[in-house]
Design a protein around this nucleic acid. Structure first.
Length: 849
RNA sequence: GGGCAGGUGGCGGAAUGGCAGACGCGAUAGACUCAAAAUCUAUUGGCCGCAAGGUCGUGGGGGUUCAACUCCCCCCCUGCCCACCA
């Protein structure tokens, strides 16, 4: 009996595809228990699906099919995160519209997914580039805008002087332009920024209750980076100005022997004395032009003196004010007090520029005259006047009170630069109106606190905050992209849209006067912030013209939350923070249920090339799933990817390894098709009750193991159990009656079905009853697994010397007695004093001599 | 520099205090075959031994325990993420 996987897989894929894959459609408001199982949707690249995609998608497919057999109403959707740079760059190269190549890539991805037998609810498929979808993205942006969560800022971007364009971080390769290899400069460009930091505290706090891998939670925790400290100021000598600094170690204040400002600090100019101004300006210009990568990889700290001094708030001593690139402008106040005795960075800086170093904290209360590295800031205060002898923690509060420092919490998380100077993204629903800008500036209209309905002539909080920028009303969404002739960047750092004059020129929705559209577009992250809600709504609702009518809160409530979310770890600190923020914002507006979108999260490990290196075209170690399917079939590919190792571990592809699971599928096929098909007369020639018992025991042990393993995402050991069980069933095949064999095989095939659905469906046909999808997942019967006998390991001094099989019912004394009597043990303990006998029920006896 | 995850046969891995190496690949031998492939059967951590059996063995060193791949301390190595965050 040949295992004709090509024929079988084609056949079942065709059957499943009926009525737009109706068999996998989730049902809104069904009485069944609901389960929302989501894959991170892909960016449909021109290269097609790779084996890494297949890994995650197979795992969730197994889980989905498993849950359906357990009676759940499963929502398992798929869609496309299709805005993005690769499509735009490809469009520039081929002079075609990005929409065209996106469509092609989507079609390819979809057919590859279907060739893998993935059971998605295709009825809910959409792309983030669909105007019907992104009108909601624009609407949500507007909601943020009108609540003052969006502001304009000059943010530095990476600028390629040769391509004359701004580049995203993703376009950089080690600080160099990916396309022309020229060194990237920093340039300040006007950008839209979302005040995500307003949610920092909640993003941090709510992390605790999520069923996510600890490592991801840790990454987010560090990314948000909460620091608690104090803020206070130093007066500047001879100038009526003061400088705010932030520190988490105010107890080291006596050790502050200099101040350092970021070169970008707004007060640098006023503070710098005439004598030093040339050097300071030159230095600052130099630093600002450096890219982040250059600045961060600087081996040695550099800086220059401003010529000014600050007055120490307690001692009144004059300390020099420097600027240096190791202080970052956008964290806390952008100015620090240098405590070189207790901080590595300040120490390095002080050593280099010969600044004084004063020890102020000491473990033992003594002071150490010489030290060649900073001292640990632990213990009691020394050289600290009034506060000498106090323990650090106590001193912090006292000093803060003494100088009137305010407690402050600072986050590393930065506001979200939410704009790209590119074509292929969601247009902003904003226009700029000079007339309205004037009006706002002149009338000094106070900002509205409430974001309620805005009356004619009034402005929203966002409009007041960003004078001249006027919202495109929700009823006029979506703002769609115009067709353009060239996708080349403008050359002035703006999006290609700036050249499409009939699109840019428009009328102000407020005053009807002339206005121009925003020509930046949203970053790729925008569309993925709420797509899980899009799937929950379904296309019927999304496609409604009226946004409010499409936004069915009851339906969102039914499908909330995503019970299980599976995808790559690379999204730990971007997509997964943005989406959490977005959900919290929608929740604040009462538009969604719950404060967290994703209840449980798992990350698949990377699949490496056969050489153990990351797969890449340049290395030539890429495995193409299409080739594997052609040679071994989708069922074998699925099974192999799950069998390779733990789901979350990265593991190398072994070209030969797939043969093992391929052979296994052949054996299963042979077992069922061979026995049920050709040789019916062979059954029950000589039935043997003990064979049935052995087979049942193996089957039920396997049911228990496979069930537990799927829930715990341990697919590799589940498959191993299925392999062993196949052997047991094959042994029993001709020693049990036809009826008993059918019963055994039926349960077995149901278990195989989530892993290798095509073959399991096909073989189900031999049993002659209905479709496998309508079966219930088997339950193990504990009585069939129960063993009367158990094998004890007998140890002497912890070393295994012998095993004996004994009745499970035997008590401790009897087991020990039997163990002592055994010949192989006798020779070890004879004539020795047995000091202790350890007995572990059903496991082990250990004699300590 | 910091954080996290790891280190077990020739290879992927299993076992999370109780018989280390399940399952699979590969290898060796045999069966089938004119032959090969495929398939099937047996063996397969190292060393000693004809065997029974013994002995060593989970990156290295120490510790806890009757018992450690598993728990604790120190060190080494690999991968990933973050990186001058005051």
């Amino acid at each position: 009996m040949k295992y004709d996987f090509q024929k079988i897989e084609k056949k079942w894929q065709k059957i499943w595809a009926k009525d737009n894959f109706k068999i996998w459609h989730a049902v809104d408001f069904s009485q069944k228990k609901r389960f929302y199982l989501l894959d991170m949707f892909p960016y449909p690249s021109g290269d097609g699906l790779h084996v890494g995609h297949a890994e995650g998608y197979t795992a969730t497919d197994i889980y989905s099919r498993f849950l359906r057999l357990r009676g759940f109403n499963v929502l398992h959707p798929m869609g496309w995160d299709a805005f993005g740079l690769p499509a735009e760059n490809f469009a520039i190269k081929t002079k075609t519209h990005p929409e065209e190549n996106t469509k092609k890539s989507v079609a390819r991805f979809k057919s590859q997914m279907q060739a893998l037998g993935l059971s998605y609810d295709w009825q809910r498929e959409f792309s983030t580039t669909d105007p019907s979808y992104f009108k909601f993205t624009q609407w949500m942006f507007l909601e943020m805008f009108r609540r003052g969560l969006v502001y304009e800022a000059q943010a530095p971007i990476n600028w390629c002087p040769s391509c004359k364009t701004g580049l995203a971080e993703e376009d950089l390769e080690d600080g160099v332009c990916e396309r022309c290899k020229s060194t990237v400069e920093r340039r300040p460009v006007r950008q839209w920024v979302i005040r995500i930091t307003a949610y920092a505290e909640r993003l941090l706090d709510d992390l605790k209750n999520l069923d996510w891998p600890e490592s991801i939670k840790q990454m987010q925790n560090d990314w948000i980076g909460r620091s608690q400290g104090y803020q206070f100021h130093f007066r500047v000598h001879n100038i009526a100005k003061h400088l705010e600094v932030f520190t988490t170690r105010i107890d080291t204040i006596y050790g502050a022997t200099f101040l350092v400002l970021a070169p970008e600090h707004p007060m640098v100019k006023e503070i710098t004395t005439h004598e030093y101004s040339y050097k300071v300006q030159e230095y600052a210009r130099n630093v600002v032009n450096k890219s982040d990568i250059e600045r961060n990889s600087a081996v040695e700290k550099t800086g220059v003196f401003t010529g000014s001094y600050a007055i120490h708030p307690i001692t009144g001593i004059k300390i020099p004010i420097w600027i240096a690139d190791y202080v970052t402008p956008d964290y806390a106040t952008g100015a620090i007090m240098g405590v070189p005795a207790h901080d590595q960075r300040d120490f390095d800086f002080a050593k280099k520029y010969d600044l004084s170093i004063l020890e102020v904290i000491s473990l033992d209360g003594d002071t150490h005259r010489e030290f060649d590295k900073p001292l640990e800031a632990k213990g009691v205060l020394v050289n600290s006047g009034l506060f000498n002898g106090l323990v650090c923690g106590v001193a912090q509060e006292k000093i803060a009170n003494y100088i009137g420092a305010k407690p402050r919490v600072v986050y590393k998380l930065k506001d979200w630069v939410f704009a790209r100077q590119r074509y292929w993204g969601e247009p902003f629903p904003l226009v700029f109106c000079e007339h309205c800008a004037e009006k706002i500036r002149n009338q000094k209209i106070p900002a509205r606190r409430q974001a309620g309905k805005i009356k004619k002539g009034e402005f929203s909080e966002g409009e007041l905050l960003n004078p001249g920028w006027i919202e495109v009303p929700g009823t006029r969404l979506p703002v769609t992209l115009p067709k353009v002739k060239s996708y080349e960047p403008s050359g002035t750092g703006e999006s290609p849209l700036i050249n499409v004059l009939d699109w840019v020129r428009t009328n102000c929705p407020k005053c009807k006067g002339p206005a121009r559209r925003e020509t930046d577009t949203m970053p790729q992250w925008a569309g993925s912030c709420w797509y899980y809600l899009g799937f929950a709504l379904g296309n019927g609702r999304i496609k409604k013209k009226d946004i409010r009518k499409g936004w069915d809160i009851k339906c969102l409530k039914y499908w909330h939350p995503v019970d299980f979310y599976v995808g790559g770890v690379e999204h730990a600190t971007r997509h997964l923070i943005y989406a959490r923020f977005w959900h919290k914002f929608l929740n604040d507006l009462g538009l969604v249920t719950g404060t967290e979108p994703f209840k449980r999260l798992a990350n698949q490990g990377l699949i490496l090339g056969p050489d153990g290196e990351k797969m890449s075209k340049s290395r030539g170690n890429v495995i193409n799933p299409d080739d594997v399917i052609k040679q071994y079939g989708a069922d074998a590919l699925r099974l192999y990817e799950m069998f390779m190792g733990p789901f979350e571990a990265s593991k190398p592809w072994d070209t030969k390894g797939i043969i093992g699971v391929f052979r296994f599928l052949n054996r299963v096929s042979q077992l069922v098709a061979g026995n049920m098909g050709a040789h019916k007369e062979l059954f029950a020639v000589s039935t043997d009750p003990s064979s049935l018992k052995v087979a049942q025991k193996s089957l039920h042990q396997t049911i228990k193991k496979v069930t537990d393993d799927i829930v715990g995402m341990r697919f590799n050991t589940a498959i191993s159990a299925l392999m062993q069980c196949e052997g047991a069933l094959a042994n029993a095949a001709l020693r049990v009656s036809r009826n008993d064999f059918i019963k055994l095989i039926a349960s077995y095939l149901v278990m195989l079905y989530p892993f290798s659905p095509h073959l399991a469906s096909e073989l189900w046909g031999y049993l002659g009853k209905g479709s496998i999808e309508t079966q219930l997942w088997p339950r193990h019967n504990p009585r069939l697994i129960f063993e009367d006998y158990v094998t004890y390991a007998i140890q002497v001094n912890g070393k295994m010397r012998h095993t004996i099989k004994l009745a499970k019912s035997l008590g401790e004394d009897e087991v020990i007695h039997q163990a002592e009597r055994a010949e192989q043990i006798g020779k070890w303990i004879k004539g020795k004093a047995v000091r202790k006998k350890i007995f572990v029920k059903h496991k082990i006896v250990n004699f300590v001599i």
